[in-house]
C-alpha cells in the first residue's frame, strides 16, 4: 500500500542520497507529510509557510501535473509514481 517518489538532486542531501523513496498512499499532502517524517526539512523545500506548493516546484503523479488535478489535495493511489521536478524551462523559439 505505497507510492514511489523520485527524489531530485536538489533534495538528495536531505534524503541521504536516496533517489527513490516509498511512502503510504493518501492525499499528496499526506504523502509529503510522510516524507517529512522520514526526512525532516524536506516539506519546507516543497511547500511554503502556508503549506501550499512552492512556485518553482512541479509535482507529477503518474506523469500528470498536479496543477491540472487537485493540487496538494490530489489523491495518490497505491502503486502510483510521483516525480518532483524543478520548474525549469527553455526552448523559447
Amino acid at each position: 500500500m505505497s507510492v514511489l517518489i523520485r527524489i531530485p538532486t536538489p533534495l538528495r542531501r536531505l534524503s541521504n542520497g536516496q533517489e527513490k523513496v516509498e511512502v503510504s498512499s493518501g492525499s499528496l499532502e499526506s504523502v509529503i507529510d510522510s516524507l517529512e517524517q522520514s526526512f525532516p526539512g524536506i516539506k519546507g523545500r516543497l511547500c511554503d509557510d502556508q503549506g501550499a506548493l512552492r512556485t518553482f516546484v512541479n509535482i507529477y503523479i503518474d506523469g500528470e501535473d498536479v496543477r491540472f488535478l487537485e493540487g496538494i489535495n490530489t489523491q495518490v493511489k497505491d502503486g502510483s509514481e510521483i516525480s518532483i521536478v524543478p520548474a525549469v524551462a527553455g526552448g523559447m523559439n
Binding site: 531530485p8 538532486t9 536538489p10 533534495l11 542531501r13 523545500r45 516543497l46 512552492r54 512556485t55 518553482f56 516546484v57 524543478p86 520548474a87 525549469v88
Partner: peptide, 10 residues
C-alpha cells in the same frame, strides 16, 4: 547548477 536547493527557484 540551475536549481536552488532551498526553494527550487532558478
Amino acid at each position: 547548477l540551475n536549481v536552488c536547493e532551498m526553494c527550487f527557484g532558478p
